[in-house]
């Protein structure tokens, strides 16, 4: 995982309430090897018309949108299927942070595991930011994970945000969670021995 302390980058608003992970990456693509890069699948079907041509109106298809590293999205973004491919597609397309009033639970944990920072801001703030980005696509936002502060463009000010402290630590330092958990192996084994003894069918 790439360590993340602070990112200052252009942002784009991708509208859509309850944007599920099938929209972020359709199921037919998630059998691809990660090494191939998942960026080409990002929003694959919703950024194209029925004939398969890129829709010039889709925010990420507009000129200059390739530079975006931050996306503003709507509430319950990433609901639906647990496919981590949704996060791979965003991360491989260079997206480092997402801003929304709320995220799907599994998507939220998948994002944290991959160093993609999900920033929750109040709905009113998101709505004001949506208006601003609609008028000024590519306006610059700073997401400072160390300070827990996101600085919005125009006169929208700076806002505190938080992600679970445990994940924050891991993302700031680029720590590996499996390795960290392995340091607790003695406690895990002791717990496990008692648990299996009490429920022997678990060990068969």
């Amino acid at each position: 995982m790439k360590p993340f302390t602070r990112v200052t980058a252009p942002a784009v608003f991708v509208p859509g309430l309850n944007c599920d992970t099938d929209q972020i990456i359709p199921g037919r693509f998630i059998k691809a090897d990660r090494a191939e890069g998942y960026d080409k699948f990002l929003f694959h079907d919703i950024r194209r018309d029925a004939a398969g041509e890129l829709d010039p109106d889709f925010p990420l298809n507009r000129p200059g949108a390739e530079a975006a590293k931050i996306l503003l999205v709507e509430d319950n973004f990433g609901c639906g299927s647990s496919r981590e491919g949704a996060v791979y597609a965003l991360a491989d397309a260079g997206i480092r942070a997402l801003i929304a009033p709320g995220f799907g639970d599994i998507f939220h944990s998948n994002a944290l595991k991959n160093g993609l920072v999900p920033v929750r801001l109040p709905p009113e703030t998101c709505a004001a930011l949506a208006d601003h980005l609609t008028d000024n696509p590519g306006a610059v936002i700073t997401v400072d994970l160390e300070a827990g502060l996101v600085t919005l463009p125009g006169n929208l000010g700076s806002h505190d945000f938080s992600i679970p402290a445990f994940s924050r630590e891991a993302i700031l330092k680029g720590l590996d969670e499996i390795e960290m958990t392995m340091t607790h192996m003695d406690e895990i084994r002791a717990f496990e021995t008692a648990r299996i003894a009490a429920n022997p069918w678990l060990g068969r």
Binding site: R83, E84, K113, E177, I178, M182
Partner: peptide
């Protein structure tokens, strides 16, 4: 409950998972 593939690898490797209580 459902998990992603990073969490799945964590479970396969350790038989545990870090979770915030809902």
């Amino acid at each position: 409950f459902g998990i992603g593939q990073s969490e799945n690898a964590h479970v396969l490797a350790t038989q545990t998972l870090w979770q915030m209580r809902p």
